[in-house]
Design a protein around this nucleic acid. Structure first.
Length: 571
DNA sequence: TATGGGGAAA
DNA sequence: AATAATTCCCCATA
């Protein structure tokens, strides 16, 4: 058996992959590996990834071939690639596209390419591989879903079961390539404005144009549904607008908050030819349903009784939508999956900075919204100067003897909180502030009490969920104007879009290991700075505690995107 | 039209 | 597996 010690990868028979973080080829290998494997852990020296069926299918969906994946692994492994892994990569990736859902029998489909979908009673589930289609027709989990066998290679599916069939098939290991097409929504001419209302010239950046084109696919059935993965600050909204201007139909946009709703409306009015009577906000305050309508997920998932109907599901049929945009698709709540399963004839665009969900519903995103269409690593945009270069540092502060004793005697949840609120963090914060005298610093934390202490000590203003919107705006504005050097904010920072850019962010406590949260927080500071300075992100944790472990979990996403944490030990 | 409280989500 | 905080909905007031 050959052993190549100078290579950075170990691939094990259970589909886990270990990557040496200090290997000279780390950057190259990581970028490639991330295309088809999910990061699981990233401690200091060895990062571990996992190859899953879903990660392979998403890779196949962006055009990667099994041969390329295997060749890449063969080149960088220390030990020969286990045979079962080699076989299964080929087998899983080969399965993507093996089964297709078509609007017409395959021989007719070829002739009708490019034509829009006419809703019929049945769709055609087709595979050129006889054993595959036979296995599906006979599988106990799926056989009841088909109306009949149309011919040797084709099963008939009731059109209304499109989403259900795809969900059932992915569960038994056959991801369906859905080429059945879409219903055209009501037409709406959407033109990108050459100049914004503020008079500045406006055009899509190259990668934004490219993302829009890949999604649209010239109107063919291969496009029209799927997810674009882009870092915060890369202009996801702009790409959404670009896609709207290619599709030119009534559009429904779903977002996470009313702030985000207003942001979308503002951007649409500013950067397209659409006018105020064409763009509606559907929120608790105003329920306008116009050719372009923007709503929140919470609105949609509201129901008066926990077993009753969802009154706002009506919105999906209120107009003939040609496109539904799911903003921050990784936060999409369960009931919206339900309704989306029924909406498979509509074009669907998912936008997100991360496909990682904390609830393991990645498969539903893949099946019901669509496969990943594009994944631009942060580092690439950083190199091109579109987002600021970021320096991430974990600062470890000691926990004093008395507190350690108290933690040892407390139940786990109290102990975690004690560690997070470690008063020694104050000194670390002061040290960090001293390093960045001339920059705006945002201090972010999870516990109000802790933040109150810090704010009082530094004589800095504090914003929490209870702070009135008017007050928030005023403080944000003064921070932007550099009248306030340090602003202390609670979890409001996670989703607040109107939060000003800062050169430096210090996280003093965080939630139980949410990776998304970390990404959101870093995203807050990742806009390119006018002065060309980088962005600094500090995470202050108590040394040798559970908190330190949780912090590692939170770093996962950043490591996935190619960042490495520096660690400073203050003991 | 604005404000505050309750409840639910995740 | 879990915490605490936040946000959003609706409805009841004025």
């Amino acid at each position: 058996m050959q052993y190549r010690a100078d290579n950075p990868l170990i691939v094990q028979g259970d589909f886990s992959v270990l990557l040496e973080a200090y290997h000279p080829k780390f950057e190259t290998v990581r970028a490639e590996l991330a295309q088809f494997a999910d990061l699981e852990k990233s401690p200091e020296h060895i990062h571990s990834y996992r190859i899953t069926p879903l990660s392979l299918w998403n890779a196949a969906a962006i055009g990667l071939k099994a041969g390329q994946v295997i060749a890449f692994l063969d080149e960088y492994v220390k030990f020969p690639l286990p045979d079962n892994v080699r076989r299964d990569i080929a087998s899983y990736m080969g399965r993507y596209g093996l089964v297709k859902l078509l609007a017409a029998p395959p021989e007719l489909s070829a002739a009708g390419k490019g034509r829009s979908f006419v809703p019929g009673d049945y769709l055609y589930l087709y595979s050129h591989d006889l054993p595959t289609i036979t296995a599906i027709a006979g599988h106990k989990e799926t056989k009841h879903l088909f109306a009949s066998r149309f011919n040797d290679y084709t099963l008939l599916v009731a059109a209304g079961r499109r989403g259900m069939v795809k969900q059932a098939l992915v569960k038994v290991g056959f991801p369906v390539e859905d080429l059945a097409g879409y219903i055209d929504g009501e037409p709406l001419h959407i033109r990108l404005a050459g100049t914004t209302s503020a008079g500045r010239p406006f055009a899509l950046r190259d990668y934004q144009r490219q993302a829009a084109d890949i999604f649209y696919a010239n109107g063919r059935e291969t496009g029209g549904s799927g997810v674009l993965v882009l870092p915060c600050g890369a202009g996801k909204t702009i790409i959404g607008l670009g896609i709207m201007s290619l599709i030119n139909m009534n559009t429904l946009i779903l977002t996470t908050s009313t702030t985000a709703v207003r942001q979308w409306v503002r951007e649409i009015l500013d950067k397209t030819g659409l006018t105020e009577d064409q763009v509606g906000e559907y929120s608790s305050e105003t329920k306008n349903i116009l050719p372009v309508t923007v709503a929140t997920y919470q609105m949609i998932t509201y129901r008066p009784s926990s077993d009753g109907p969802f009154p706002h599901f009506e919105l999906f049929n209120a107009r003939s939508w040609g496109l539904i945009i799911y903003d921050e698709v990784h936060t999409l709540p369960a009931p919206v999956f339900q309704v989306t399963a029924e909406l498979q004839t509509m074009r669907r665009l998912g936008l997100t900075a991360t496909l990682v969900r904390e609830d393991k519903r990645e498969t539903d995103v893949f099946t019901l919204i669509g496969p990943k269409k594009l994944d631009i690593p942060w580092r690439e945009l950083e190199a091109a100067g579109w987002i600021a270069e970021a320096v991430c540092t974990e600062v470890r502060v000691p926990l004093n003897f008395a507190l350690r004793m108290e933690c040892a005697q407390s139940p786990e949840k109290t102990a975690y909180r004690l560690e997070a609120e470690n008063p020694a963090k104050l000194r670390a914060i002061e040290d960090i502030l001293a390093r960045h005298p001339a920059e705006g610093v945002l201090i972010i934390g999870q516990y109000i009490r802790q933040l109150e202490t810090i704010a009082a000590h530094l004589n800095a203003p504090l914003i929490t969920g209870k702070t009135k919107n008017a007050k928030r705006d005023e403080l944000y504005e003064r921070f932007r104007q550099s009248q306030i050097p340090v602003l202390v904010v609670s979890k409001v920072a996670n989703f607040a879009i109107d939060l000003p850019d800062a050169g430096v962010a210090i996280q003093v406590s965080g939630a139980f290991g949410s990776r998304q949260e970390e990404a959101q927080r870093l995203g807050r500071i990742l806009r390119p700075k006018a002065n060309g300075r980088g962005a600094y992100f500090y995470s202050v944790v108590s040394k040798d505690t559970r908190e330190q472990e949780f912090a590692h979990h939170r770093q996962l996403f950043l490591a996935e995107q190619g960042y490495r944490y520096e660690i400073i030990d203050l003991s």
